[in-house]
Simulated assay, not measured.
Amino acid sequence: MNFNRLGSSDLQVSDICLGTMTWGIQNTQEDADAQMAMALDAGINFIDTAEMYPVPPNEQTYGDTERIIGNWIARNQDKRDDIVVMTKIAGAGLKYIREATPITGSAVTTALEDSLTRLHTDYIDVYQLHWPNRVTPHFGKHWPDGADPTRIDREKEIEGMRDILRGIKAAIDAGKIRHWGLSDDTPWGIHTFLRLCEQENVPLPVSIQNEFSLLHAKDWPYLIEMCECENIAYLPWSPLATGMLSGKYQNGARPEGSRWTLAQRMGLFRDQAPAQAATAQYMQVAEKAGITPSQLALAWCRQVPGVTSTIIGATTLDQLSENIAAFDLTLSKDTLSDIHGILKSYPLGF
């Protein structure tokens, strides 16, 4: 297992970050314990979760993923300092989470205390803002008919971000979080937070996690260049495009128990003809290379310059083993050439 420094922090994290958003709906505590054991045995020391999880989010299971991880931590206190735990505060949109209100400094204080309790830990290694308060070009809103930057109230957003940072600073000063990061944000969001951190004397964000895959490469190269030059770790989430790049959803297939059989908060907006066509071609490249489609997508993601650690998830141990093995692969020049030929034809599959 390779390890990389997490942005400007002193943390060394594995090439693989274990995602946990299925724990609590598709996976039980027993499943999670088994995944943790496999991950640790493989050398993974990086775990990602969120107060909103599991996904699809709902009031009945809210916080259960953190509780499952907390149950594991409570039984393995001797391993707590060996793992880097990231969690996230949810933004506006879910009535059962702080009445669907935006992230504020006081919300950071409240949400953090609840996460610490559920996780059975005294500190969070990296505390992240799950999504910005403003509408951003993520979750299918990256096309010209999606997010509208002309509608952003710039001064209101900046003051809201400044207030958030005061909550972050208080948590860092209290030792409840060691570092903080962003998620589902943009170059403007990163730039503004960096400027405000200097003004408010707040430690800089160490990471950002955004959706990034062979079907959704919109962060390359502009946002990733900014991260690299500003020493912010770039952490791709959904490198398999919610499982599409595995090939399991080709030709309308919906395997029993798979994510696409569950109700989706924002619908199956990734299920588009260009994405399916690109996936079919990537499957052919994987077959030619003698690896699985999932391994092709993950091995490609790992070698993208500027990627610090890739967030992977699985519902079975077989899937997790297959995905972990991808990070021992080095794609040949011919395979990369084949991949990039498809990527140029389908730079944004959905």
Rank of each mutant, 00 (worst) to 15 (best):
A50W: 02
T49H: 08
P102T: 08
Y53D: 08
Q29F: 08
T28A: 05
L40M: 15
I97A: 06
K79N: 00
M38L: 15
Y53K: 07
Y96I: 06
A100W: 00
A34R: 13
Y53I: 05
M86Q: 12
A74Q: 14
R67Y: 00
I44D: 01
D31V: 10
E30G: 04
A50N: 02
T28Q: 04
Q77F: 00
L18H: 07
F46S: 02
A100V: 02
A42I: 05
W23D: 03
I16C: 03
Q35A: 15
D15A: 14
T65C: 09
E113S: 11
D82E: 14
F46V: 03
T109S: 13
T61M: 10
V55E: 14
A111D: 15
W72M: 04
I103Q: 08
E99Q: 15
I97W: 03
N76D: 10
P54H: 09
I25Q: 13
L116S: 02
K95L: 14
T110L: 13
A37F: 07
A50L: 05
A74R: 12
Q35H: 15
A90K: 03
R80I: 11
D82L: 09
G24A: 08
A32M: 09
E113M: 01
I103H: 05
T109H: 12
M86W: 00
N27F: 00
E66Y: 11
T49K: 02
I47N: 01
D82V: 02
Y96H: 12
L40C: 07
C17H: 02
A90I: 05
T101K: 15
Q29Y: 11
C17Y: 01
E51G: 06
Q29H: 09
I16R: 01
P102R: 01
E66R: 06
V84M: 04
Q77T: 12
Q60H: 05
A111F: 10
W23L: 11
L18F: 14
G91S: 10
M52L: 15
G105V: 02
D114Q: 11
W23S: 07
E59W: 05
N71D: 12
A107M: 12
Q26K: 14
M36I: 11
R67K: 15
D48G: 01
P54I: 07
N71Q: 13
A90Q: 12
A39Q: 00
M52R: 09
V108K: 00
L116T: 01
T61D: 14
T28V: 08
M52I: 15
V55Q: 11
Q35S: 14
L116C: 01
E66S: 10
T65A: 08
D41V: 02
K88V: 11
Y53W: 05
Q29C: 00
T109G: 00
I69K: 02
I97L: 12
Y62E: 09
Q29P: 04
T104V: 01
K79L: 15
V84Y: 09
D48W: 02
L116Q: 01
I68A: 08
A39M: 11
T22E: 03
S106V: 08
N71P: 01
I89F: 12
I25F: 02
D114G: 10
L94W: 13
E59R: 13
T65F: 03
L116V: 03
Q29T: 12
I103Y: 04
E113T: 04
M86R: 00
N27D: 08
A50E: 04
K95V: 07
A74G: 04
